[in-house]
Design a protein around this nucleic acid. Structure first.
Length: 638
RNA sequence: GCCCUUGUAGCUCAGCUGGUAGAGCAAUUGAUUUGUAAUCAAUAGGUCCGCGGUUCGACUCCGUGCGGGGGCACCA
């Protein structure tokens, strides 16, 4: 006699036990058609599950994330079914729904080829056609393990062992094929529709552990309608168009080459962009009380041993051997150098907080597979700084850093920032009461920002808690850039100290912080965020002056020179091409302003402005142009 | 680092099952002197990623190294 409460608060009394589907039918015909899975008292269940007791129910359709996930989870089962049909003997590992799709990990000697994916897709469509009925069985643990060992499905055996004691071991059948699975699943294989696509094959370690064997992972995507599938594919395509590696080449910003994998060869325009960002950051930091320094790129191995980096990160460090056999390391971080600067001369509490900054180029030997354009390189420049302060100053310094970082992101067009706060890990150095203080200081700064944040328990560095600043770009992707970390370890290790007001020597607290993080990476993100169409003030080439014909070359040159003289970056295009050609060429290379010069302009000492992505023409007296646009040639907050 | 995939002119790419390479754009030269997204023509341009092997003969097949791409692992 279950009394079933619906999400709207209404309830229905059923005379006998019912299935979820029957409840949906009772609510409405259309809901029963769209229903995919349900939750009973918050727990996800199959629609065919039988309800005997009073409960609250929620029915999910493809409009709910739960429903979408269920569709994708079913699709991956259907893929596995197809794979085992075409390639008998393929072993199954795991196959979850993920963001925008699903995957399944398989073990099989031979690799899956793109052609195989096509075959699998066809077989999947047949399974959907057949509309095989889903059935759930609960098996006894040992019987399940026994069953799967006999089949040689060793991953499934391991998976049974991972199911917590007390939980049911459930097997889902889709027709005759079955899989060990937590569920829930849709009523039949026809329910997923036909808007799916297998996208790629990739290697993946069993249980995500690189000590384990590598499995073959097939990724796919699945959507409730053709339109949503098309939209998704379109989104991927749009993201590809913004790819900074593609734009970097097209816009002549930088290149990479074999002789130095993971290191950037900056071209004139890319380097201009780089320098503009550095100049901007330098200005902001000078105003915020930072003291810029420069420390050696190559430092004796002994220092890295003392700092602890040698032991912990030695295998990712570049080293160099001198002719007399001394080992030096190429710095992977700037902090030890900054502590050494701090250590010069006796420091008093009156010197604190001391904010030491450096645009430090560091090298890290990243695994080859990790390299990715500008986003993951082996040589990069950090806008790094270390703030030496007393324990009492942590809170305020963290607040200042947080405000500075948010302000800077805003200037560069990122208003949407999320914070990730990570507190003490199990393995750590330092006293707990100092951790208490440090954690509170950081968390206060996080809260004061009034931004969305996540707390990552136990994810902090071994030497202190941290905040990571994640910005969301124009097409909704998240990028982790800035970081603020409290270091309770290094100052002590490298014997940093200051004389406190009571005359005793104390070890300062050190805050590590980077706002852009890596300049290289940040530029990659900027390129993708703006799709190469930079705001005027950071565009590496801001203006191209185009004479209508040779007759006006002299005037165009004069205009160009005047623009450069007031500090904007301008070029003049004197090539023997017609106006249409030049407009097309410079528009495609995303120059913010094109200035057209012909008879009219010469006569009136003016220029005709064509802005990127418009075809409007705006005539302006040259001196007014110079005045107006040099005023725009700086950061918004300036 | 691991799995899959890929490497042809400055760029984008074509080149069937082995007979030493081709297009478009860019470049150069000439003609044209152009008013808001490609003017016309000619010319030049390649150790087909490196090294080894199979073969009468390799850009094509095999092995290996390096680089790129997609994932996994890693990311102080």
């Amino acid at each position: 006699m279950p009394l079933i409460t619906l999400p709207d608060g209404n309830s229905i009394d059923f005379p006998n036990k019912v299935t979820g589907l029957e409840v949906a039918e009772k609510i409405s015909k259309s809901l029963s058609k769209q229903a995919l899975i349900m939750s009973i008292d918050g727990e996800l269940k199959d629609l065919f599950s039988i309800i005997e007791k009073d409960c609250s129910i929620k029915i999910f359709t493809s409009r709910d994330q739960e429903g979408l996930d269920a569709i994708r989870h079913d699709t991956t089962h259907i893929m596995a079914m197809a794979v085992q049909k075409i390639f008998p003997g393929t072993k199954l590992a795991i196959g979850p729904a993920i963001k925008d799709g699903f995957y399944y990990d398989f073990y099989r000697e031979d690799p899956f080829t793109p052609k195989d994916l096509e075959k699998i897709e066809i077989a999947m469509k047949e399974i959907v056609e057949k509309d095989e009925i889903t059935r759930r069985e609960v098996w006894e643990r040992d019987k399940t393990k026994d069953h799967y060992s006999k089949l040689g499905e060793k991953y499934k055996v391991e998976l049974v062992d991972m199911i917590p004691e007390g939980n049911e071991v459930s097997i889902y059948y889709h027709g005759k094929w079955y899989d060990l699975c937590r569920g829930p699943h849709l009523l039949s294989t026809g329910k997923i529709g036909k808007h799916f696509k297998l996208t790629k094959v990739a290697g993946a370690y069993w249980r995500g552990d690189s000590n384990n064997e590598m499995l073959q992972r097939i990724y796919g995507t699945c959507w409730p309608s053709q339109k949503e599938l098309d939209d998704y594919l379109k989104r991927i395509e749009e993201a590809e168009k913004r790819d900074h590696r593609k734009l970097g080449k097209e816009m002549d910003l930088f290149h990479f080459r074999e002789e130095s994998p993971g290191s950037v060869f900056w071209h004139e325009k890319g380097w201009k962009l780089f320098q503009k960002l550095v100049a901007y950051m330098r200005d902001r930091q000078n105003k915020a009380g930072y003291k810029e320094v420069n420390t050696p790129e190559i430092l004796d191995r002994a220092l890295w041993e003392k700092s602890g980096h040698w032991e912990k990160y030695g295998e990712h460090m570049y080293t160099s051997k001198t002719p007399d056999e001394k080992i030096f390391a190429i710095k992977p971080m700037n902090c030890p150098g900054h502590v050494q600067v701090f250590n010069q001369g006796l420091k008093s509490y009156r010197d604190l907080p001391l904010r030491i900054s450096e645009f430090g180029k560091v090298h890290r030997y990243e695994p080859s597979g990790a390299l990715h354009g500008l986003l993951r390189v082996r040589a990069f420049t950090q806008d790094d700084a270390h703030i030496f302060c007393t324990e009492d100053q942590i809170t305020e310094e963290c607040l200042i850093v947080t405000n500075l970082i948010l302000d800077i992101y805003k200037d560069l067009g990122f208003e949407n920032v999320i914070l990730k706060y990570s507190d003490r890990p199990d393995l750590r150095v330092g006293d707990d009461n100092v951790w208490d203080k440090a954690e509170k200081a950081l968390l206060d700064a996080v809260k004061a920002s009034k931004l969305e944040y996540t707390i990552n328990k136990g994810e902090g560095a071994f030497y202190g808690p941290k905040i990571e600043f994640v910005l969301r770009d124009a097409i909704g992707r998240d990028w982790q850039c800035g970081t603020l970390q409290v270091d309770l370890n290094l100052p002590g290790r490298l014997e940093a100290s200051f004389v406190d007001s009571d005359g005793t020597k104390k070890v300062p607290v050190m805050l590590h912080r980077a706002l852009f993080g890596s300049l290289e990476r940040f530029i990659g993100i900027l390129i993708e965020n703006y799709a190469g169409k930079f705001p005027f003030w950071i565009a590496p080439l801001q203006v191209v002056v185009i004479p209508i014909s040779e007759e006006f070359d002299a005037y165009a040159k004069e205009v160009n020179e005047k623009i450069n003289n007031v500090g904007m970056n301008s070029e003049v295009d004197l090539k023997n091409h017609n106006l249409n050609y030049k407009i097309r060429e410079h528009s495609l290379s995303k120059i913010p302003l094109l200035l057209i010069c012909g008879k009219k302009e010469v006569d009136s000492n003016s220029v005709t402005i064509r802005r990127l992505d418009t075809n409007k023409q705006e005539n302006m007296e040259l001196n007014l142009f110079l005045k107006k646009f040099s005023a725009l040639n700086k950061a918004p907050s300036n």
